[in-house]
Simulated scan of single mutants.
Amino acid sequence: MNKPGEDSILSLPERHNRILMLLQQRGSLSVTQLSELFRVSEVTIRKDLSYLEQQKKLYRTHGSAILISPYISDRHVSEKEKKNVPEKRAIGAAGAALISRDDSIIIASGTTVAFLAREIQPVGHLTVITSSVPVTQILSQHADTDVIQLGGITRRSSMSVVGPFAEQMLRHFNCSKLFVGVDGIDLEFGLTTTNMLEASLNGAMIDAAQKVVVLADSSKFGRRGFSKICDLEAVDLIITDSGVQPLYLERLRERGIEVTVVDSL
């Protein structure tokens, strides 16, 4: 560990290694912060970050550095459902435990909400409104569950519906909870998805629910999809896995957002 004022005498590889180590700990750092920390000019730090970005070890954005690119491209549900399966199963189980007797809920689209649907064991009579075709297929098997499938344009990549017809249907309902999956959770930008029609529908779902529950594995934090769903202030609870960085937990809880962390099943 270097003493104060000695960071400027680090060799170039040492400084690069320490930058990456600090990003692992803090999530993101600005050029100014790094300049002050290492007692070198901002020009030097920008050169360091450019080199490390070329090596695909970090991503530069707005005068700062993070470890991975925050931007997400749309992927087919068949590809997504194979990733982080134990985490999604545990998150789905925790979400299912929130459903009350004779509840009325909204379930959005995505692979994590499909895991939620598989974990649901209705108590009393359950009413579910959903845009997800797989969720409808799963929950329609329960005799004591009514599933209202929203209508509209089918997105092949997500196997869900979007569009104004689905949004109009939601204006006639009010449910206790919305369970929504996202492509990204960013502390400044909020919740995002890769499709603007899906983002718009998710916004209508938020308006039709009393409580918003986000189901997101830890890989979604610090990421951004193309379209914004809402600010973080619209969220009541986030359920995620133990891989989430402590920095995100601290910042979210400071803003009054409840976060439940589950261990993989």
Rank of each mutant, 00 (worst) to 15 (best):
P122L: 05
L126V: 08
H16M: 14
K57F: 04
T194I: 03
M205L: 08
H16T: 02
Q25C: 04
A216E: 09
T44C: 14
A94L: 07
A90Y: 08
D183N: 15
F115M: 05
G95A: 11
R255M: 08
D231I: 05
S264D: 14
R224T: 13
L150E: 04
V85I: 15
M21Q: 15
V244E: 14
L201R: 10
P164C: 05
G63M: 12
V213Q: 03
Y71N: 12
S69G: 13
R60C: 14
L52S: 06
I120C: 09
L170M: 04
I72F: 09
G256S: 08
R156L: 02
P70Q: 07
V85R: 14
G152Y: 04
E258M: 10
V244H: 12
V123H: 00
F173T: 01
T130P: 02
Q33A: 15
E119I: 03
A94V: 09
A108P: 06
E254C: 08
I107F: 02
Y248E: 01
V161Q: 03
G256Y: 07
G225T: 09
V212E: 06
F38W: 07
L249D: 14
Q137Y: 08
L215G: 06
S78F: 12
M159T: 00
S227F: 05
N17I: 04
N195T: 13
T127N: 07
E53L: 02
Q24T: 05
L201S: 07
R224C: 06
K88L: 07
I66Q: 11
V213R: 03
T111V: 14
G151L: 10
P134W: 03
A209H: 03
H62D: 12
H172E: 02
S28M: 10
L197G: 02
E258N: 10
C230E: 07
D183I: 00
F226I: 13
V31K: 13
A208K: 06
G222V: 03
R15L: 14
K88E: 09
V147Q: 03
L22W: 15
G181Y: 02
S160C: 01
R251N: 05
L191D: 12
R155C: 01
H125Y: 15
